[in-house]
Design a protein around this nucleic acid. Sequence first.
DNA 1: GTATATTAAGATAAAATACTCTTTAATATG
DNA 2: CATATTAAAGAGTATTTTATCTTAATATAC
Lengths: 145, 145
Amino acid sequence: MLLSNTCIYGLRASVLLASKLSDDFVTIRELSDELNISFHFLTKVLQMLTKSGILKSYKGPNGGVKLARPASQITFMDIVESIDGKQIIKECALGLPGCGELKPCPLHDQWSALKENILNMMNHISLEQLASNRASDQFNISMHY
Amino acid sequence: MLLSNTCIYGLRASVLLASKLSDDFVTIRELSDELNISFHFLTKVLQMLTKSGILKSYKGPNGGVKLARPASQITFMDIVESIDGKQIIKECALGLPGCGELKPCPLHDQWSALKENILNMMNHISLEQLASNRASDQFNISMHY
DNA sequence: GTATATTAAGATAAAATACTCTTTAATATG
DNA sequence: CATATTAAAGAGTATTTTATCTTAATATAC
C-alpha cells in the first residue's frame, strides 16, 4: 500500500471539502458522517492538515474546517506530504543503501520511471480536479513493450 | 512505501541467491551477513518463501536455502505476492469502497494506469534479470503531458 | 550414538500505525 | 455571564509490523 490509511482519510476529506459550494466552515462531524470515518480519528488527521496550512479551522458555533486556498491551488501531493511525509516513495524498490545514479541497484531505472509517473500524477492533480472528477483531463500515461 | 520491509528483505535475499553461480544450498547466515539483515528475522522471511515454494531448504550441515526454480522463472511479483500478499496495490488510491469501472472514484483512471505499469513491471522482471542487472532490457516506460 | 550444523517454530518484545476517549480552549448566542 | 458548539490537545488502547530470543526438529560426520 502506497499511502497510509491516515493519508487516505485526509485526501478523502479534502476532496469532499473541495466539492462544497459554499465557503462556510464545515464541521468535522459532518465530514466524518459523510465519509464514514471515526469522528475523533478524522479530527486528528485534519489537525495535521490545519497545522501544515492546507486547512483553516475555526472553533465554536458555525465553526469547522475549510480549505485555506482555492481547491485549484492544492495538489494531491500537498496532502500526501503533509500526512505521510516527503519520503512516500523510497529511492528504489529494493531499498538498497546507496542506490542512486552513481551505483544503481538492479531495479533502479525501472523504478525511477515508475516513481516519476507517480510523483508527477500527485504533483499535478489538484483538489479541484478531483472534486469535479475531471482529473483525467490532465493525463495520458502509456507503456510500451 | 509500496512494499513492506519484510518484502524488500525477501527480494534482496532472492536476488542474491539468484546471483550465486553454484547450485549448492546457501546458509541464511551467509545471506544475512552479506545483506546486513538480522539473521533471525531473515530466517522468518525466507520461511515464507520456502512455504510458498519459491525456495527449497535443507537442514543440517551443508544445508541452507536455494531457489526452487531457475531464476529466469521466478518473477519479482512471485516474491511480492508471497510476502505482502496479492493486494499490495489497492483498487484505487483513495481506497473508496466500491470504486471500480462502474462507479469510478475521481482518481480511478489515473490510478489504474499507474497500477498497470507497476504490476506489469513486477510480473515481467525475473530474478535472473535482477541478478544480472539487465532488468532494463525489458522496459520502456513513458509518460506524455 | 554423540556432537555439530542448520532450518523451523514458537514465544516474546519493541516500534509504528490506527483508533478512542477525555479534557481544554475558543467562540457564539442569548 | 451562562450555556452550547466546536476544534485542539493529551492520554490511553488496540493492532500490525518489525525484530529478537529460545527451543525443537532434521541432517551430517565421526
